[in-house]
Amino acid sequence: MRVDEFDFELPQERIALRPVRPRDAARMLHVLGSTMADATVRDLPRLLNPGDCLVFNDTRVIPAQLEGVKLGGQARVGATLHKRIDLRRWQAFVRNAKRLREGDVVHFGAGVLADVEARGEDGSVTFAFQGDEPVEILLERAGTMPLPPYIASKREIDEADREDYQTRFAEKDGAVAAPTASLHFTDRLMADLAEAGIEHAMLTLHVGAGTFLPVKADDTNDHQMHAEWGRIDAETADRLNAIRGRGNRVVAVGTTVLRLIESAAGQDNIIRPFEGDTSIFITPGYRFKGIDGLMTNFHLPRSTLFMLVSALMGIDVMKAAYAHAIASEYRFYSYGDSSLLLP
């Protein structure tokens, strides 16, 4: 399909620069088939059925945004780590990457140094961090939260973002972007969901910065997704299959959860244990095999994520839903409002 089919006009004032407080006070557009209704995240217990299951991503965002200087020169370098290779090496998207060569050393401040090990064909750089301290500790010392460009370009990243850009489920270090659909959940909402008989499950997908990369191709067939590491254990896979088998719904909380479940599901609609990289790219025409619904924030025009929700609900339905959200002054993107999409 042509990428411009997924375009729409979004006024800049609709982009949320801070989350609402409390988190579960966000608005939520409920799209059921081709119908839609305004709601709030707190309405979730009444919009799902007892026995349905919400699936969350327990990845934790690390402070993966770094600013540094190349040793032996004056070139300033901005790096966003996006994929771990091993204990000391990370791939990164780099601002001013043309000034770096293999063998260069970059000082990121606070005593954090990294060797330039390689440059990829996609423009990424592989850094090998010096020393014996875990890279996570080095990042806590020198890094900042890697807020999306549409927020970071409009205001300074501050201490509030260390909490605001982390979900209540965050346990496993490795993401460089938050699974933002989960930002809306509070202890109170989780208690209300449990009281309503709605279950929940966990999996892990370490979200990479590639999620923010624009689609530069004119046709979706020519776009290459960046790989991200994920894991679904056998117990979780069996449980989700049992939930669907008894006629209840598996609802992914966020596109990261959806993409991992669909990567693990076979043509027989059975979800299997999964551990490894996935670069699944979902566009209209895709047949969903492992999920029955999606809770997600509002996405960028022409983005792979808007393509995904269009595949789930139909492009005409999603364009109508987004037009309604814009006219009704919903807040967009990572710190914005939510939608509940049930085909």
Rank of each mutant, 00 (worst) to 15 (best):
E9W: 12
S34E: 14
R18A: 13
L47R: 09
R42Q: 15
E9F: 14
M36N: 02
L47C: 07
A25K: 06
L29H: 02
M28T: 04
V41D: 02
P45N: 07
A26V: 08
R23H: 11
F6Y: 14
V31W: 00
A26Q: 05
R14C: 11
F8I: 12
G33T: 12
S34Q: 15
L10R: 14
R42K: 15
R18M: 07
T40F: 07
V3N: 02
R23F: 09
R42P: 03
L17S: 08
L29G: 03
D24N: 08
R42W: 10
M28A: 09
L10N: 12
P19R: 05
V3L: 08
V20G: 04
D43A: 10
F6E: 03
P22F: 13
L44A: 08
V20L: 10
D24Q: 06
Q12V: 09
L29F: 04
L48R: 00
R14G: 06
R23Y: 08
D43L: 10
D38V: 05
L44E: 03
L17N: 03
E9N: 15
R27T: 02
L29P: 03
V20Y: 01
P19H: 05
E13R: 15
P22T: 11
A39E: 10
M36Q: 12
A26H: 01
A39R: 13
T40S: 14
M28K: 01
L47W: 06
V31C: 03
R46D: 03
A37S: 11
V3P: 00
R42G: 09
L32M: 07
V3S: 01
V31M: 03
R21H: 15
T35P: 00
P22S: 12
D43H: 09
P22H: 12
E9V: 15
R46W: 00
E13N: 15
L44M: 13
L29Y: 04
R21K: 13
M36H: 11
T40G: 11
L10G: 08
D4G: 05
P22I: 11
L29I: 12
E9R: 15
R21Q: 14
D43F: 07
D43G: 09
R27L: 08
V31H: 00
L48Q: 03
R23M: 11
D24V: 01
A39T: 03
V20E: 02
D38A: 13
R27K: 15
A25V: 02
L10F: 13
P45W: 04
P11Y: 14
R21L: 13
D24Y: 01
G33E: 07
D38R: 12
E9S: 15
E13W: 09
S34V: 13
G33N: 10
A39C: 14
T40H: 11
D38H: 13
S34K: 13
D24A: 06
T35L: 08
I15A: 09
F8L: 08
P11G: 14
R23Q: 11
T35M: 05
L29S: 06
Q12F: 05
V31G: 03
R46F: 01
F8A: 11
L44W: 00
